[in-house]
């Protein structure tokens, strides 16, 4: 049997194949078995968090940090521009497709997690804080 990948100190172990994930509903699932609905449902239940659709608009080698990739996203209804630098093996959950990364081979090698190839145009699951209602918007107590 193939040896289970060992999480290096810098590799987050919640992406290791077989890692147990607790959804906001209390349900437990393995990271490789998660589906889009699990994230959507958890955000609904958790109250303070909101799921955003973040479209990948550009992928390039990071200028500032050699070895990392710069991912450029358009985030949420506002299509806000957000750029993050991540290791190429970092997995992202793509709506309707599942786990994807810039280097599926390295993701499989380091985490044991099967991934699609992340591409421009992919829409990833991200979270942000639920916009707090402004005081004047809050319903007056009946």
């Amino acid at each position: 049997s193939s040896l289970a990948p060992v999480p290096a100190p810098c590799n987050p172990s919640h992406f290791m194949k077989g890692a147990i994930i607790q959804l906001a509903t209390g349900e437990l699932k393995r990271v490789e078995d998660l589906q889009t609905q699990d994230f959507v449902r958890s955000a609904e239940v958790s109250g303070g968090l909101k799921i955003d659709s973040s479209m990948v608009v550009d992928i390039r080698a990071s200028q500032q940090r050699p070895g990392l990739v710069s991912l450029h996203f358009n985030v949420g209804e506002q299509q806000s521009k957000v750029t993050i630098d991540v290791p190429p093996e970092h997995p992202f959950f793509v709506f309707g497709q599942g786990w994807s990364s810039c280097s599926p081979e390295r993701t499989a090698q380091l985490y044991g997690l099967a991934c699609h190839h992340l591409q421009v145009g992919d829409v990833c699951v991200s979270i942000t804080l639920q916009q707090q209602l402004q005081p004047q918007q809050q319903k007056q107590p009946q």
């Binding site: 987050p12 172990s13 919640h14 992406f15 890692a19 147990i20 994930i21 607790q22 959804l23 906001a24 437990l28 990271v31 998660l34 699990d38 994230f39 958890s42 958790s46 968090l49 955003d52 973040s54 996203f73 985030v75 949420g76 506002q78 806000s80 521009k81 957000v82 993050i84 992202f92 959950f93 990833c124 699951v125 991200s126 979270i127 942000t128 804080l129």
Partner: peptide, 25 residues
Amino acid sequence: NVEPRSVPVFPWHSLVPFLAPTQSD
């Protein structure tokens, strides 16, 4: 007797990026 090995459980929101636009946006 074998000590039961505790299995770590991770919260769902640790798996997805928190992509809050910076103020400059």
